[in-house]
């Protein structure tokens, strides 16, 4: 790819990001819906179940919970990614894009760009919400921003999963139905709500190696929130895994998604 082509690919991706953000602005009710779920989780798990929940070591359950909710919100964002891509691919507008002299990658990179911007918006709301219920970052702003960076990295990886999903199931209604049953067990079998060492052995191992857990554990460490540690190798190397898992996911899924997208010219 020459420099000129790369330049256009970036410009076109940015223009498509702008297009996708205009969609958000034109349907704000969707954003409200996406915020309401994680906020509800903070309130329900933090206050209703939280009183009966234990945190290894010592510390507030709500402070333990918040990094988990940040990551869970990133996971549920995958549903929006998938259904938006399915909407685009299923309508005539994709033919318009494909008949323009724009970079072919822009439909996908524009989606990823818009999803990261959206994720930033969602995280901002959740951070405010977290501060209101007593969550704090305790190890300085630098580490906190690093944690946010890791959470966004996971979001980028999940975006590609969503893109692939949206291209495989090119019907937006189907997508929204299948995302929840995929996403919910993934959060339940992780350290989002419960520390893995409090689970039965085999479940704890599954939860500790869950890619979501890596990012959550790393975020807890960097925010200085309780619930860090555990004996497993995965728990000991949370930071490494929080980078490794998303990078691996992108390396595997992004090429599959791109190939699937190119096969639209069947």
């Amino acid at each position: 790819m020459t420099a000129g082509r790369l330049g256009w690919a970036i410009t076109d991706g940015w223009v498509m990001t702008g297009r996708n953000m205009r969609h958000v602005i034109r349907s704000p009710e969707e954003i409200v819906l996406y915020f309401s779920l994680p906020i509800m989780f903070v309130l329900v798990f933090g206050y209703v179940f939280g009183s009966g929940m234990a945190v290894p070591g010592d510390g507030s359950y709500r402070e333990f919970l918040l990094p988990g909710v940040f990551v869970m919100t990133m996971l549920y964002g995958l549903g929006a990614t998938a259904s938006q891509i399915a909407v685009d691919a299923g309508r005539g507008v994709v033919d318009r894009f494909r008949s323009l002299p724009m970079a072919r990658s822009a439909l996908l990179t524009g989606r990823a760009g818009a999803d990261v911007l959206r994720a930033l918006l969602e995280l901002s709301v959740l951070v405010v919400c977290g501060l209101l219920v007593g969550w704090r970052w305790r190890d300085g702003l630098g580490d906190a921003l690093l944690a946010v960076g890791l959470i966004l990295l996971l979001r980028v990886a999940l975006t590609w999963v969503g893109i692939l999903l949206g291209l495989l199931v090119p019907n937006p209604d189907t997508v929204s139905v299948i995302v929840f049953p995929l996403a919910f067990p993934l959060t339940a079998l992780s350290n989002v709500f419960v520390a893995p060492e409090l689970l039965p052995d085999w479940l704890g191992a599954v939860a500790a190696w869950n890619p979501l857990s890596a990012t959550v554990a790393a975020a807890r460490e960097l925010f200085g929130n309780p619930g860090i540690g555990g004996d497993s190798w995965a728990a000991q190397h949370a930071l490494l895994l929080a980078v490794g898992w998303p990078v691996l996911l992108i390396a595997v899924v992004a090429p599959l998604a791109v190939r699937r997208y190119q096969r639209l010219s069947r």
Binding site: W8, V15, R19, R22, G92, V93, D95, L100, M102
Partner: peptide, 22 residues
């Protein structure tokens, strides 16, 4: 089938396609 972005306005559609034509 009209290949336009149904969420965007008519103007936004044309500006978008113009920008994608560089």
């Amino acid at each position: 089938y009209a290949a336009v972005d149904e969420t965007l306005s008519g103007r936004q559609n044309l500006v978008l396609f113009g920008r994608l034509r560089h």
